[in-house]
Design a protein around this nucleic acid. Structure first.
Lengths: 234, 234
DNA sequence: CGAACCCTTGAGATCCTTCAATCCATGTGG
DNA sequence: CCACATGGATTGAAGGATCTCAAGGGTTCG
């Protein structure tokens, strides 16, 4: 019976592939398997909402989510994406704060819910888990600091090129060099922190410079090093 | 003998006032007291530099530091400040990365150095300490996300007002309503993410609007709620 | 008394946003 | 199958916020 639950999650989620969860003992795996919930979500659904109380966090088993803050007059600022093996919502759970972001699926997705109690249990009882989570938080913090500096100092053009570089690094490209994440122009603008129209104009400049090709939301990377140069990355 | 070391730190630093360190057992206090180093630093000194290897972290006992990243053509972006009871450098220590920021004293300061080994020891052996540190990282992460949204969406005017609000909340004001942190116009610009000249012009607008008074680097807050309104904070 | 720093102000340039109009694809209900 | 609504993409034009450059003034300090 218990094994059945465990199989249900390990089928979708190979713990040993996760830096965070590979330290779990069999009994810990069993424990979280007992109170976890695996659900699938259609594209475009909110998993949790900014300013709502959040009772647990989620591991992404399949799909891609955007995590964003809603700022002045409803404009979204995308803070990060989450893909398989990523964990979302742990920040608010650990702090006991209301969610400071909204998480929404960009594709049909499968998530594993882990309750606040389970997360606390792991953090308190498994030093390695706590350490990995701490490292994760620190890594995200480092990235956030980088982001702040970029937004504060770089031009929109540089930032858009940098975003394309990061998206390639995070989601990869297929054999035709097409970015493996599909975003609307508005979503791109909400990462870069600019207006939709600016993204459109710059993308078409990048196209004229033979850095990329565009077909709807598909972006083909033609000259990665060129993008890096435009982005002013080192 | 050992007690002498312990006194040396507890004299400057009341552990029970620190959310992070109040969980330490006497033997843990003793342990870190044995390998810690307390030093005073003149104003304007670098404690550690971006891209350098960092062998431990620092607790601020006295003084104020700025923590910043150096971006395009040497322009500083101030990420945060540190004041007594704050801890700096733990992010890079825990991740084993090179420092991603530079920390510099804004006043004569006294810091307590804690080695990587001691920090690791505490994280691994004291679940409460690890938990507090995790919470701290999560809190900073939440603030960083907030910051990203602000820089991306707000005008320079709004951001400058917001910075003044935050500085008041973090460092307070004296009986004459003067901000208890002195910054150059350039440093203010490096928090806001703008040009020095813009800060100067906006500060004098705020003065004309009777929100503040300026005398050199002293900023007197005349109308705090007005600043909050300009900052578009709620 | 310079030198070094910081602060201030003006003017022009420019990047970017905003607003408005159009186009296109998709989906839905009659 | 058509008419229409919806959401996204695109383009142009105008305006504005902010930056850059340049010059000058004040203060501190050796």
């Amino acid at each position: 019976m218990k094994n059945q639950y465990i199989n249900q999650i390990t089928e979708d989620f190979n713990f040993s592939h996760s830096a965070l969860f590979k330290h779990l003992t069999p009994s810990e795996v069993e424990r979280i398997s007992l109170d976890k919930t695996i659900n699938t979500y259609k594209k475009g659904l909110c998993i949790y909402r900014q300013n709502s109380r959040i009772t647990g966090c989620y591991i992404v088993l399949d799909g891609i989510l955007k995590v964003y803050k809603t700022g002045i007059d409803g404009k979204e600022q995308i803070i990060r994406f989450a893909k398989p093996y990523d964990i979302i919502g742990f920040r608010s759970v650990l702090n006991g704060d209301l969610a400071c972001t909204t998480a929404k699926t960009l594709e049909d997705s499968k998530l594993c819910y882990i309750s606040q109690e389970s997360l606390y249990y792991l953090v308190k009882n498994n030093g390695n888990f706590a350490f990995e989570l701490l490292q994760l938080a620190c890594r995200e913090l480092g990235e956030a600091n980088e982001y702040i500096t970029d937004i504060a100092q770089k031009t929109v053009r540089e930032r858009l090129a940098e975003v394309l570089v990061h998206l390639k690094q995070e989601f990869g490209i297929d054999k035709e060099n097409i970015l493996q994440i599909l975003l609307t122009r508005e979503e791109l603008a909400n990462i870069v922190g600019t207006a939709t129209e600016s993204v459109i104009r710059l993308l078409s400049e990048f196209k004229n410079d033979n850095l990329i090709e565009i077909e709807g939301r598909k972006i083909k990377i033609l000259n990665f090093n060129g993008l890096i140069k435009v982005a002013n990355l080192n």
